[in-house]
Nucleic acid binder design. Structure first.
Length: 294
DNA sequence: TTCCAGGGCGGGC
DNA sequence: GCCCGCCATGGA
């Protein structure tokens, strides 16, 4: 991979397995939006960045070489060989072969731990467009104005402190409804106990899930999402409605397996590749509407 | 109008 | 351990 400056933008040359649509629409993130020109603009780490694919190159706008080297290379997981991961999954069965072929440009983003906690609490019993709307409104109301890009204002994700100290009305204003008390409680707990990403570094997935489910509004599925997207626990396998459908369609026809058992089954089946398998399957299932009318 | 969305919680058994 | 009703909101 080479980093080149061109017209004030940064161009990443020779990047494989990187398709913005696949990355930003496979359900892992809520602060990336499609622009009219097909590019995606996102807010991460108090920074606004625009990403597009031009021929074989990844073009990054509104950023600089320092940030690319210090932040975005890591965030986009550029150092990882996703080709190898897809090959291993493809060799397992025809379904994974098809799914990895369909979402061939997916990469799992390394997102901020605490933002994942709050965002996925909001995700419970909610629709993805609504989750995005709520997260953006919450940032507008309780975060900081960090940048204006293409005439649009962008706001940072609210800090732990601002959420912990916010009135409940200020939180419910983001259409977060019955999840608002969960968010307030959890933000307070994170602040009071000074819980940080590094506290999870040496924990197994089960230990991580056990610790995370102590948060209000965090059950098995949300914990797995936080573990996968915010803590780089790649053996996590979040089972949501879509994953349940696609698992039943592909592997567990007419079994009527409970969610905890399906989680255990999948973790054992996919092992260290569980998180990747989950993302390819989720994207495939959701884009194709697998098992929706049953 | 009714159903559903990247579920969790508290209750019951 | 499993199942049930409930939880707001908006889009289809």
């Amino acid at each position: 991979m080479d980093i080149i400056q061109k017209n004030g933008n940064i161009v990443l040359k020779n990047i494989k397995d990187f398709v913005p649509k696949h990355i930003f629409e496979c359900g892992q993130c809520f602060r990336w939006d499609l622009e009219e020109d097909g590019s995606y603009t996102g807010v991460v780490y108090d920074k606004v960045i625009n990403v597009s694919l031009e021929d074989e190159d990844v073009v990054l706008k509104n950023t600089n070489v320092d940030d690319v080297e210090n932040i975005w290379i890591n965030y986009f997981d550029i150092g990882k060989d996703y080709g190898h991961i897809k090959k291993e999954l493809s060799d397992m069965d025809e379904y994974l072969k098809e799914s990895t072929k369909f979402g061939y440009g997916i990469r799992i983003l390394k997102q901020p731990f605490y933002e994942m906690v709050i965002s996925f609490i909001i995700s419970a019993r909610n629709a993805i467009p609504m989750i995005k709307r709520s997260v953006n409104k919450l940032s507008e109301d309780l975060g900081e104005h960090i940048d204006t890009y293409n005439g649009k204002k962008y706001y940072s994700f609210p800090t732990v402190k601002s959420l912990a100290n916010a009135d409940i009305e200020k939180i419910t204003a983001s259409k977060i409804a019955f999840r608002a008390p969960y968010i307030q409680k959890t933000a307070k707990m994170i602040e009071d106990e000074d819980i940080q990403e590094k506290d999870f570094e040496k924990l197994t997935l089960d230990e991580t899930a056990e610790k995370l489910t102590k948060f209000a509004g965090v059950g098995a599925k949300v914990a797995d999402c936080i573990a996968l997207f915010g803590l780089s626990k790649y053996d996590a396998f979040p089972v949501d409605v879509w994953v349940k459908r696609v698992m039943e369609e592909f592997y567990l026809k007419d079994t009527n397996m409970s969610l905890p058992k399906m989680r255990k089954y999948s973790i054992e089946k996919f092992g260290s590749l569980g998180g990747y398998a989950q993302q390819y399957l989720f994207y495939y299932a959701r884009e194709k509407g697998i098992g929706k009318n049953k």
